[in-house]
Nucleic acid binder design. Structure first.
Lengths: 106, 106
DNA sequence: TTGCACTTTCGCAATATTGCGAATAGACTG
DNA sequence: CAGTCTATTCGCAATATTGCGAAAGTGCAA
């Protein structure tokens, strides 16, 4: 109440301050969630770009539509390299993995 | 016997022709093996660059040295995104994943 | 040679991911 | 409306990855 913070710009910023700012563990979870979401999104984009249905892609990699659906769910946390490679292979892509340094802002 | 191939340059090329050329399944396995080897190598390099022993890195990510050793084994096929992220996180890196189109040479 | 730190290999239990069918929901068309 | 195609959710078995200790293999220095 006291410290007179300058007013937050919007709801997102308010929520960020309340739940994440200065809480490394939560920030880490947030980053993981974003990373998973990104992968799900890429899989969906790749499939869409190839103009395939979930069932068609599933058959290409030897599994079922429900599995593809699970992979494209942004909340899915079980992404594996093996599955990414299977999908990439079916769509004539390869998976590149890079480790990128993070500059920590103290 | 007949077709009069021009002589192969070296043993590697001979072996390549005998076992891989024109055999997509084997080429795919070869590519996977190379990808796994590359990841193992990167993990090792990252750890070396951070000047950590396997035991030290293991403690950073909450596991044991034997696990790290397994990951750095070039023949290991079980690399997972989860583990790569744990290692990256401990070493202040992030894992970037990209799908890259393969130009198929017919 | 011994000691010491580090690495590697092995086996098995614990956990996580995948396989897959069934049921449901949504969108679109005739 | 029914019919069709697509997407989503659920549960559980099958497979894959991880956890972890014990034992043995390296390399180096005293």
């Amino acid at each position: 109440m006291a410290k007179t913070l300058k007013p937050a710009r919007d709801a997102v910023e308010i929520l960020y301050r309340r739940f994440y700012e200065g809480k490394p563990a939560r920030l880490k979870n947030l980053e993981e969630a974003r990373a998973n979401e990104e992968i799900s999104c890429k899989i969906h984009e790749l499939r869409a770009a190839a103009a395939l249905t979930q069932t068609q892609l599933a058959r290409l990699i030897g599994t079922t539509a429900s599995v593809i659906c699970r992979l494209e769910d942004a909340d899915y946390e079980g992404h594996s390299l093996a599955m990414l490679r299977r999908i990439a292979g079916a769509l004539n892509q390869r998976v590149e993995i890079r480790f990128i340094p993070i500059r920590r802002s103290a």
